[in-house]
Simulated assay, not measured.
Amino acid sequence: MKQKLKIFIGGIRNYLSVQFKKYDEKWPYLILIVVALVVVIGGINLFVELTDTLHTETLAKYDEQITDFFISRRNPKLTDYFLFVTHVGDVYGYLVVLALTILVSTVVFKRWRYVGQVVLVLFLASVSNMMLKRAIDRARPGIEHLVSVETLSYPSGHAMSAMAFYGFLIYLFYTFRMNKILKGLAVLFLIILILSIGISRIYLGVHFPSDVVGGFIAGLIWVFFCIFLFNIIEVFRRDPKT
């Protein structure tokens, strides 16, 4: 991605040099960041527009069928597992993972920037989730809840944060130079964790399946934006012209 960004930035510079006799070398980076923000805002607006389907009978039917599928399979062992993973997707779970991230980043990779990056991704997902919940204002499922909840339903905060936080960790593992088998196992573990956190919210009766899918999509938007943003910053830092 960094190489493609360099080529794209070079193209913007060539265009600016033709249009303007003098311009700041930082302009191409600012233009890219603004474009990325516009894309994210547009994606979120489209996401909100698509939520009109939440009121359709077809989606309600699928929500009910999928929910019934998981509810009918409740048993003590599964309940213990999904209670555990849903707590991993809570505030205290992220604090533990952040502590591990700090340890690995400083001791193994000796780079604090990874900590700042994952914190920013989680922060953006959390704040935008609260805003989306208030904008859409969907009530929780009217079935038995196995955990207590106080906020609105759509999109699922657990699913959105899990996709954003652990999804970005998947990207980081992908960029690390490490044993391919260990890298593959780490990525597989994180994928299973993301899916488990999402499913746990349906199993525990606190979210509709569409809440979880919506949370995954919204979280993925922030993952792509942050990957793009951090790569732009890295290219900017190494650019001799700035």
Rank of each mutant, 00 (worst) to 15 (best):
H87V: 03
V85I: 15
K110I: 08
V127R: 01
R113S: 11
K110Q: 13
L100E: 03
F82G: 05
F82E: 08
V85E: 02
F109Y: 15
S126H: 09
T101R: 02
R111M: 03
V119S: 00
K77T: 14
V96F: 15
D90Y: 05
R138D: 07
Y94I: 08
R113D: 14
M130D: 11
A139G: 05
L103Q: 07
L122E: 08
V104W: 11
L78M: 13
V127P: 01
A99N: 02
L103S: 09
K133R: 08
Y94W: 10
L95A: 13
Y114D: 02
A135E: 15
L124P: 03
N129W: 10
V107K: 10
A139H: 13
D80C: 01
L100W: 09
R134H: 12
M131T: 12
L124C: 06
A125T: 06
Y92Q: 13
L83Q: 12
D90M: 08
V115H: 04
V127M: 09
L98E: 13
H87G: 06
L95S: 04
L132E: 07
L98P: 04
L98Y: 14
V104E: 05
L83C: 02
T86C: 08
T79W: 09
V97Q: 05
R113Y: 14
F84W: 14
G116D: 08
R113G: 02
V96D: 09
F109C: 00
R134T: 13
R134M: 11
L100D: 03
R113C: 07
Y92I: 10
Y114I: 01
V104H: 04
Y92W: 15
F109G: 03
